[in-house]
Amino acid sequence: MNASNPEIYVIAAAIVATLMPGSLHIRVNLWFYGIVTFLVAIATALTAIGHAEFGLLGVALLIAVLKAVGIPLSLLWTSGRLNVSRDKGCFLPAPLAMHSSILLLGASFFLTKDLPLPVVENGGGGWLGAAAGISLIFTGLILMLTRRLAISQILGFLIIENGIFVFALTQTRGMPLFVEMGVMLDVLVGVMIGGVLIFKIQKSFEHIDVAQLTDLRD
């Protein structure tokens, strides 16, 4: 295969992410999320070194510290406080969810190949990275689709965010550092708000089951 170094890492991240829907354990999912994000961080760092954009290195460091370690730890703490360790799952059984996310991984690779992509001239930015990004987005969607607990929903959302980041990283080289920092800040704030909201939901509904939130419609 003619993938560049960062691409190998983002593809690995996409593959690890597809394993997430297969387990209903929050702890396992958080571990996987940490690995995925760490791989993305490595890819970012490699891109930074490859293109001599040392601002990106800082982003990579932030991703590794905050997203790959910080967010899983905080969510782990949240799940410990709420005393939930296992999602019940809905819509699709966990194994089938995993297999369908793998099928979507395959589909995104075969479809992205023909996508008109804004390939930057200076090497890199091939379709493989874009495919990995799109696959991450699909996996996140599957994760959100087949989970009931709000924590898992946040995880799915985070995976989607990873996907968007990977897509942006491999396609647009010239994204300003501030924008990336801003995105990261948004995510952090989102997770914190989500965490607070989970507590709120738990308090007012005595559960954090999203499927039962249909009571809210009227």
Binding site: L19, S23, L24, P93, H99, L105
Partner: peptide, 25 residues
Amino acid sequence: VPEFIAYSLTMSLLASLIAIGGRAM
């Protein structure tokens, strides 16, 4: 148990994805 076995099938599915695309790459 099916959830555990699913990981075995996952590995094979990934391998088959490589096989489907392998020659093209």
